[in-house]
Amino acid sequence: MPEVMFAGPDGRLEGRYHHSEEADAPLALVLHPHPHHGGTMNNRITYSMYRSFEKMGFSVMRYNSRGVGRSQGRYDGGIGEISDAAAALDWMQSINPNSSELWIAGYSFGAFIGMQLLMRRPEISGWISVAPPANDYDFGFLAPCPCGGLMIAGGKDDMAPEPGIRKLVEKLNTQKNVDVDYRVFENANHIFANEADLVSEALEEHVSACRAERPLALTMD
C-alpha cells in the first residue's frame, strides 16, 4: 500500500493507496474519524474498511485530512475537510479514468464528511457509514439521498447513540428509491474495539450484494 501525496485545497495531503490489478477496477475512498479525537487514516476501523475494499478488488485510498499526520493545513470545522475528500476523489479518478464504480466509506466524523460528499458527487454509486454522529450533526442535507447504502451502529455507543442513528435510517428509508441496510452490533461502543471483523464482514456482504444487483454499471463521465 504505497504512500501517496496529492494536492489538496489547503496544501498537500498524505494518503495510502492500493491500485487494483483488475482493469478498470471500481474505486473506494475511506474517511477517518474526527482529528480532534485522534482520528487518522490508521484508525483500526478505517484501516479494516480499506483492507476490505482491497480484498474485493477495488482500487482504494485512505488519507489524512488537513492538519493530520503529514497532511498540510489545519482543521476547518468540516467545511475544508469536505474539500479535502473531493480532492482525494479527484486524484483517484485522474489515474483511473475508466473506472465504472465509486464507493465512499466513513467512520464517525468521516461518515458525516462522506455523506456530505455523496450529495456533491453524483458519480458515487454506494456508501458505508459507520457510527455516523447523528446527534451532533444535522444530516438533513440528505434530502433527497441519491442512493441507498450501509449504516452501522453500536448498541453501547455513547458518542453516536444508536437511537439517533436509527431515526436517521428511518427518515432515509421513507425516500423514494432509497433502501438503507441498517445493522446494529449490540455490544459495540464507539470504537468498535472487538467488532472490526464484523464491520468488515458487513461491508463486504453489502457491497457484494449491491454489485450483483447492478452488474452493468454505467461508465463515469
Rank of each mutant, 00 (worst) to 15 (best):
A85T: 13
G69C: 06
L13N: 02
R121D: 07
R44A: 14
A193R: 14
I82D: 15
P144D: 12
I45S: 07
G80L: 10
T46D: 07
A25T: 02
D138W: 15
E195G: 08
N64D: 07
M220S: 08
V169I: 07
E186S: 11
A25M: 11
N194V: 00
S71Q: 10
M41V: 15
I104T: 04
E14N: 09
Y47T: 14
I124G: 01
R12G: 07
S125M: 08
L218F: 11
N187G: 10
C145L: 13
E81N: 05
M1L: 02
G148Y: 11
Y47V: 10
Q93F: 12
S129G: 12
D158F: 15
M5Y: 11
D197S: 09
T40Q: 02
L27Y: 01
I95T: 06
A188I: 08
V4K: 00
G11E: 04
R66G: 02
E14V: 00
A85H: 07
G38K: 11
S59A: 07
E170A: 01
S108P: 00
P161Q: 02
E22A: 04
H32L: 13
N64S: 10
H32R: 04
F53C: 06
A202T: 09
R121F: 13
D197C: 05
I191C: 00
S59V: 05
I124P: 01
Q175S: 10
N96Y: 01
L203E: 01
T46P: 01
P133V: 05
P35A: 10
M49W: 02
G110T: 09
A88N: 01
K55A: 15
S65A: 09
R12L: 02
P144T: 07
N187D: 15
E204Q: 12
R74Y: 05
I79L: 09
V130Q: 09
N43Q: 03
G149F: 08
H190S: 09
N98R: 13
A23N: 14
E22Q: 08
M159F: 13
S71K: 06
S65W: 15
V178E: 12
G11D: 09
N43V: 03
N189L: 01
E101D: 14
E205D: 15
A25P: 03
R120H: 07
K167Y: 15
S20F: 12
G57R: 00
N98H: 14
H18L: 04
